[in-house]
Design a protein around this nucleic acid. Structure first.
Lengths: 194, 194
DNA sequence: GAGAAACGATAACATATGTTATCAAGTTCA
DNA sequence: TGAACTTGATAACATATGTTATCGTTTCTC
């Protein structure tokens, strides 16, 4: 959440660096659960190597909500901030190197940050962007066909298509894995490459 | 955005009351545009009477993103905070009584608020909730069928179904208006009422 | 009050998508 | 190495959904 924005708000660096030593480094194999649906988030998660998805269970099959990669950080934001059970699970996709910063330190870090005069403005700018991201996800799914959404992934976030197993992508796009396979084969026919 | 939370953060009331006089009261007929897609948001909007939707244009037909009713407030949050063109239009559905608070006053209000010791925590809690709301919209649409989504509307937000024209609801659910009509007639047959 | 526009239902047809089942290739792990 | 699991493709069929067109009713507008 916060540390995505280090570049835009260089002031964060000083604070962030101070808390680096409190992180726990974890080498996690694929399919390691970092936070389980229903539990309360206790860590801020930073990905040094590998990738991670968030998903929730729906009658046995799970639905992927989002993907994260190297140098991205995440938490189950609502669960972390409001101390409520997480509505989704966070799980590694590939074998990954993860840094976990315990909640107490994040809270202390935020407490320090709040003395920065423009902290509130910073928080607002960050959260407005995040909010826009999720609104766009919603907008895309009511506006675009699954085929268009897949092509958007291909053109704008190709690393997802390259590194993430297809059935995770299917549930993220909102279609069955069979249909995603159909979409791929249809696109392959339309655009033969030599 | 903010003033949704007056009840949970009573401190807001003092500040809010102070800025009440700066609002402009507007009586707007149905289909009045309060903010146009592409323009930069200049007001916080509060609905005293009536209802409002946000939507964006997509090849001629528009897609509704959200509905707002009495005693709710809104802005094009990202546009308002980050001074970027709004990605959607805000328009009245019914004849409505609207209060507009110009941006300059909202900024001043936030500036005052930022001296409250727990302002940052308040902002975080609020935005985490909002974020959860939009994630849930996304989750619902990749998890549920349009029929299930319509039934959720019926059971959890019946006022929407009662007051909003059907084709707006259809685009919000992500289906054509013809199909929403089919869903309704199917449900009516399943559940005859005497 | 009359014409125009908005709203909603329905039909008929085409297309998109889900479901289930099967097969093949790769990967993991004991 | 071999069995189990994972991943992905494809076929066949059923269902869901989009598109276009028509009709009747209501609502708006002048």
């Amino acid at each position: 959440m916060f540390f995505h924005f280090k570049d835009r708000f260089p002031k964060l660096n000083t604070y962030w660096d101070k808390y680096l030593p409190f992180q726990k480094r974890v080498e996690a194999p694929a399919k390691t659960v970092l936070l389980e649906e229903g539990k309360i988030s206790q860590h801020y998660i930073f990905i040094e190597k590998g990738c991670v998805r968030t998903f929730f269970n729906n009658n046995g099959d799970d639905k992927t909500v989002q993907f994260f990669f190297e140098n991205e950080g995440l938490s189950s934001f609502d669960s972390f901030i409001n101390n409520v059970p997480s509505t989704f699970t966070i799980e590694t996709i590939e074998p990954s190197v993860i840094y976990l910063l315990p909640k107490q330190h994040v809270l202390r870090l935020m407490d320090e940050l709040s003395h920065e005069p423009d902290f509130a403005q910073m928080i607002l700018q960050m959260t407005a962007r995040r909010q826009m991201h999720y609104i766009n996800e919603f907008v895309s799914i009511i506006r675009d066909t699954p085929e268009q959404r897949y092509q958007l992934l291909l053109s704008e976030r190709p690393h997802i298509v390259q590194r993430v197993p297809q059935h995770y992508i299917a549930s993220y796009l909102g279609v069955s894995k069979v249909h995603l396979s159909r979409i791929k084969s249809k696109l392959a026919k339309g655009k033969p490459h030599f």
